[in-house]
Design a binder for these strands. Structure first.
Lengths: 142, 142
DNA sequence: TTTTATAATTAGAATAATTCTTGATATTGG
DNA sequence: CCAATATCAAGAATTATTCTAATTATAAAA
């Protein structure tokens, strides 16, 4: 039901400033979109969705806003091979499982107590600033 | 010393067929390049290196060959964010640590006995077909 | 408030990595 | 040797993303 999403949108309130970033109208709407539709959309997906509310927004602005949000640690940018980047408002440390059959991306968390640095043989002196764990595969009925 | 590499190249012998892929001259030279220079070159890096021996090779052919080698599981394609793909002949399961200061990429292996599936909360029914672990950071003197 | 400075937005052009297309070459199997 | 198939080369095309320049909005100062 297409209209349902529009009707539901219980206006998530977004502050004027997050992590030092001024939340302009465009950034608000883009962030709201990500919070509401947590299916790891591409910049173009976000562009199409947000046009309902900001008909004049440009794709360049979507890219600018997404980048600003990423730079300020408000959202995460996720890459799968050489596909378009996807964006994700889940800031907890997690990886991604890409179901090759449906294309759906599932967040994958680490089991409690697991620290990635503990299971890897890092080069001596390595200071980790960012981690990305990506899994590709199929989801079968269980 | 630029000429040294050329002189050293102790002609690694490459079989006519690997994993069912006919090793044409171009594929041989590209594979040899990867085996000799294990610094995760891009397609363009490979192109420039391999031109010494195959002056007529085209970049498109380098891409074709790299793709054929990847498809046949002879090499791995490694992606960092949205940068150019890099290629790697190390087939053992491993991740990559990208030193932001120098740009150098280090292979990172799992500690013995570690199975990535054991430390992740995978969605039920997930069958893993490929894994990528990428770390970004700095290397400090110890 | 007006003025001024700074930041954000827009539209479209530019870029860069990669893929595609087409025609030429080479290789293999019969 | 000949036909079928695979590979290769050159350059055009594609696609995601970034850049440029002009406009608009916001904040800060007077």
């Amino acid at each position: 039901m297409v209209s349902k999403n529009l009707e539901i949108s219980e206006e998530i309130e977004i502050p004027e400033v997050i992590s030092g970033l001024r939340m302009t109208r465009q950034r608000q709407e883009i962030y709201r979109t990500l919070m509401q539709q947590r299916n790891h959309p591409t910049a173009n997906d976000v562009f199409m969705r947000v046009k309902d509310r900001l008909p004049n927004i440009s794709l360049a602005t979507v890219y600018n806003c997404l980048e600003a949000l990423v730079q300020h640690g408000i959202i995460r940018q996720v890459n799968f091979d050489r596909e378009s980047s996807r964006y994700c408002p889940n800031l907890s440390e997690h990886g991604h499982f890409h179901d090759a059959t449906t294309g759906v991306i599932h967040d994958v968390s680490f089991k409690p107590g697991i620290n990635l640095a503990d299971v890897l043989d890092l080069p001596p002196g390595a200071i980790i600033e960012g981690v990305e764990v990506t899994l590709r595969g199929k989801l079968v009925a269980i």
